[in-house]
Structure formats: structure tokens, C-alpha cells
């Protein structure tokens, strides 16, 4: 089955492309990759990238080279919830290593892996610009700050109970935002 954006995502796509001058529609690539990740289950398959290329009228290889450069684009399937733990200096000073170890133990997976039930993927990321509330973890568009083991337990439980759809950085609820 050929991939296709929802009507809402297509409307957003048109809105985004209009933000750049005639002929410069390639500028919409990164925003559209975020939308594609939200539309297609949290990661970018070759088919998803080819589809984005067709929307922008550019070569598929132009999409591949960009998608693989940026850390937010997942090149393989991920769980419904991607836990992105900051591991950079300031967070590390305040225990980021322990957070990662705690999660690895709790979930029974290593960084980069997904739990067998497809619920969680564990990733480490670089400084999230929230070092004042370290240690920090991002899940979709939400920042979880001042992490402790107690907080983590609670957060994991909440996601386990309430997450039906994959969570994306670009939340679908925002599709309608945007300027005239």
C-alpha cells in the first residue's frame, strides 16, 4: 500500500511550502520529515522518505542525506514511546549516567533498543537546553525534568497505561497551528 499523508497533514504541508520563495520548496524538507514521522509511526522508512521527496519534487537521495544527518529522525522502527535521555556534561554532572542505567535495568534493554512489547525505545541525546533542571529526558514534545527514580517509575507507568498511539515530537494536535 502506497504511503500517503492524512488530509490534515497535506493541508499543513501546503502551508509550510508557502513559507519559502518560489522554487525554494526544498527548505520545507526538515519540517516535513517531522510531519512524516508523526504520520508514519515515529520513524522514516525508505517509502516514507520517497513520499516526502515526491511532495517536494526533489530526488529521494536529497531526502536520505538529510534524514540521516539529523539525530531526531529515526531510521528504524521505534516503540510507541521514545525515551530520550540527555547525557551531556551538565546532566551527567547531576546523574544522567544513573538515569540511563536505571532505565536499562527497569526495561531490560540497552540504549538503542526497543522493549519486546513495542512500548519503549531508549535513546541517549545531547544537551536539550534544560540543564538547569537536570537530569532531563524528552518524550515526544514533553520534557521530564529533575528526574529521580521515583519520578521515572511514575512516568513509565503513566505511559504504559495511557499510550495507545506512537508519541511524536511533532504532535498531531498542532496540525492546525500556523500563520495565515
Amino acid at each position: 500500500m502506497a504511503l500517503k499523508f492524512s488530509d490534515e497533514a497535506l493541508a499543513l504541508t501546503r502551508n509550510i511550502i508557502k513559507r519559502y520563495p518560489e522554487g525554494k520548496q526544498k527548505s520545507a524538507l526538515i519540517p516535513l520529515l517531522h510531519v512524516a514521522q508523526a504520520e508514519f509511526g515515529g520513524w522514516l522508512s525508505p517509502e516514507a522518505m520517497d513520499y516526502v521527496a515526491s511532495l517536494l519534487n526533489i530526488l529521494p537521495v536529497e531526502v536520505y542525506e538529510v534524514a540521516t544527518f539529523y539525530s531526531m529522525f529515526n531510521m528504524k522502527p521505534v516503540g510507541k514511546c521514545v525515551l530520550e535521555v540527555c547525557r551531556t556534561g551538565p546532566c551527567w554532572l547531576l546523574g544522567a549516567e544513573d538515569i540511563v542505567k536505571f532505565l536499562e535495568k527497569k526495561l531490560g534493554i540497552k540504549v538503542g533498543e526497543t522493549t519486546p512489547d513495542g512500548m519503549f525505545t531508549l535513546k541517549t541525546v545531547e544537551c536539550l537546553a534544560a540543564c538547569g533542571t537536570a537530569p532531563v529526558m524528552q518524550v515526544g514534545e514533553t520534557y521530564h525534568e529533575n528526574l529521580t527514580s521515583g519520578k521515572l517509575e511514575k512516568i513509565l507507568n503513566e505511559y504504559r497505561q495511557n499510550t495507545k498511539e506512537p508519541i511524536s515530537h511533532f504532535a498531531k494536535k498542532h496540525y492546525k497551528s500556523g500563520q495565515p
Binding site: I30, H34, Y70, M72, V125, L128, A129, Q138, E141, T142, Y143, H169, F170, A171, H174, S177, G178, Q179, P180
Partner: peptide
């Protein structure tokens, strides 16, 4: 990109 939630705040302010 990590600050997509702030992106939405800015879009709202611009609107």
C-alpha cells in the same frame, strides 16, 4: 527541533 513545543508557542504568538 527538540524544542518543537516552543515552536508551537512561537507560531501562536506570530498568529
Amino acid at each position: 527541533g527538540e524544542l518543537l513545543y516552543v515552536y508551537h508557542i512561537l507560531e501562536k504568538a506570530i498568529a
